[in-house]
């Protein structure tokens, strides 16, 4: 429910009025902004550092092999 409300609120503001100055948007103080940013990056970095599943290496290798076979 909250997500829906947030969306509606956001859409009440016409796109055209969304300039770079963001006069109508709430602003966070820099400390909170930094905390949010740090937590977001920490969470995300953990995902980025997960090992790449073999399926992706295999996929690209297979495609290459298939193409070599068909082109030679």
């Amino acid at each position: 429910m909250m997500g829906d409300n947030g969306n509606k609120l956001a859409r009440l503001i016409p796109e055209a009025s969304l300039g770079d100055q963001l006069a109508s948007d709430p602003k966070l103080d820099t400390t909170s902004q930094k905390r949010i940013g740090d937590q977001l990056r920490a969470m995300y970095d953990e995902l980025v550092q997960q090992p790449v599943p073999d399926r992706f290496k295999n996929l690209l290798e297979q495609l290459e092999k298939k193409d070599r076979e068909t082109s030679t």
Binding site: A10, I13, D20, L22, D25, L28, S32, Q33, I36
Partner: peptide
Amino acid sequence: TIKSRVNRARFRLA
């Protein structure tokens, strides 16, 4: 629009 969304997202998260 992106700036606005990012800003709102941060505020909402906070």
